[in-house]
């Protein structure tokens, strides 16, 4: 299916006063193919900016992001040259193949408030050209997954913040993308709901073989969900460490000794980073 590689990504933002601010300072890593890659880093370091660049919403100033759609259907998408890739998902016509299907669960839910919950999902189905016959099945499956089947006819402004976040999650999952980007998708949920949804998301990603990138602040979440954990420094962001999860996804158990050990190790790495930077 799909493979994502971030290669020496550099991104500047222009401040109000016109001065340049370095946000991404040569970020390089490979996302785990068919697995979950967690991006762990302090607030404001540039994690959302990186996901936006991968989704094609921001242009990198240097470096590139490479997509490959299976080894047979090899295709390289390079976002280095803005003219060739002005729209997300467009591709260089000289290269064979197709752009990967990409789903994005935004940090703020970004729902169309004037559309009912189910129509928010249908909006994505239409855009992604998902055949109409499969809409009812997908709606039912993913809305019940996030526990909102009973609210499918409701308008988003009549839902709670956490429920809206779950609609955004359902929309990203329901298009069953090859590459799934998730920006703190469980941050507004209570622990029990978050825990259930983490488990379900891991299962779905494993079943569909998606390449998933998940931004989180939560070390435990990273240890539980991440097959690979990429630790960012504070702004300007570079990669401090890439940790492979020694435990297989199916064997991770929050109360298991091996899991707790791994979580501690991860936490220590993060704490060391905080000490070094003197935050």
């Amino acid at each position: 299916m799909a493979y994502v590689s971030v290669d020496r990504a550099v991104k500047f933002f222009t401040r109000e006063d016109g001065s340049e601010m370095l946000v991404l300072d040569g970020v390089s890593f490979d996302a785990k193919e068919h697995g979950i890659t967690c991006l762990l880093g302090p607030s404001g370091c540039g994690k959302s900016t990186l996901l936006n660049a991968i989704a094609g919403l921001e242009k990198l100033d240097q470096g590139g992001i490479e997509f490959r759609v299976s080894s047979a259907e090899r295709q390289v998408m390079d976002r280095k040259n803005p003219k060739e890739n002005s729209e997300p998902g467009t591709r260089n016509p000289e290269l064979p193949g197709r752009s990967p299907r990409l789903g994005y669960v935004f940090q703020d839910p970004r729902l169309l408030n004037w559309k009912r919950v189910e129509d928010n999902l249908v909006f994505a189905f239409k855009g992604m050209k998902i055949p109409r016959e499969s809409w009812p099945g997908l709606l039912e499956k993913y809305l019940s997954l996030v526990g909102l089947l009973g609210f499918r006819k409701q308008y988003p402004l009549y839902l709670s913040g956490g429920m809206r976040q779950r609609v955004g999650l359902a929309r990203g999952l329901a298009i069953e993308p090859e590459i799934l980007l998730m920006d703190e998708p469980f941050s507004k949920l209570d622990q029990l709901t978050a825990r259930q949804l983490r488990q379900d998301t891991v299962e779905i990603c494993a079943r569909l073989g998606q390449t998933t990138m998940l931004v989180t602040h939560d070390v435990e979440e990273a240890a539980y969900m991440g097959d690979r954990i990429v630790i960012f420094s504070s702004r300007p962001a570079h990669i401090v460490e890439v940790v492979e999860n020694p435990l297989e996804a199916a064997k991770r158990d929050l109360d298991d000794f091996a899991f707790i050990q791994f979580k501690k190790r991860l936490l220590q790495t993060v704490l060391k980073l905080v000490e070094q930077e003197g935050v």
């Binding site: 936006n52 919403l57 997300p88 239409k126 855009g127």
Partner: peptide
């Protein structure tokens, strides 16, 4: 941006 990501026409 959201509508671009989902390739809305």
């Amino acid at each position: 941006d959201m509508s671009k990501v989902f390739h809305a026409s």
